[in-house]
Amino acid sequence: MSASAEVLSQAFTLGYTYTRSTGPVVGRFLTALRDRKIVGIKGSDGKVIVPPMEWDPVTAEALSDFVDLPDTGVVKSWAWVKHPRGKHPLDKPFAWAQIQFDGADIPMIHCVDAGDESAMKAGMRVKVRWAEETIGSINDIACFDPA
């Protein structure tokens, strides 16, 4: 060992040497989002589920019957975030909501930019506000606007 303060170093780039596929169901939904479209799937009982699930939530049957839907829907339940957290999708007070797309039977959770808590109520109509750039992610839906 020499007395000099030599520090051994080596450049290192953390890389994942594999790619992960989101598969035929989740992938189809995310790809549709990239194209600014909403796709649902029919459950075993015929109910339309958005976002599509790979397996039926009750019977666990594999699902594959896709349905195209509009980008509008109805708020079923909501919660008002008075103090948004750093990671939250909006940096001002907003609502989380269970939103049922028109033509769907099962609601999904996303956020609504309603401005004020008093503007929120169950049954209100909302419409997707698309992100400026869509990449095939749930965040391609920037939020929902009251419609």
Binding site: S77, W78, A79, R85, P89, I109, N139
Partner: peptide, 24 residues
């Protein structure tokens, strides 16, 4: 991991949605 985690939907918010449904 695809539909909800990327929104950072926190555990208090999901409980709040549940409480609202019950209140309504």
């Amino acid at each position: 991991p695809y539909y909800m985690a990327p929104l950072w939907l926190d555990s208090i918010s999901t409980a709040a949605l549940q409480a609202r449904t019950m209140l309504d």
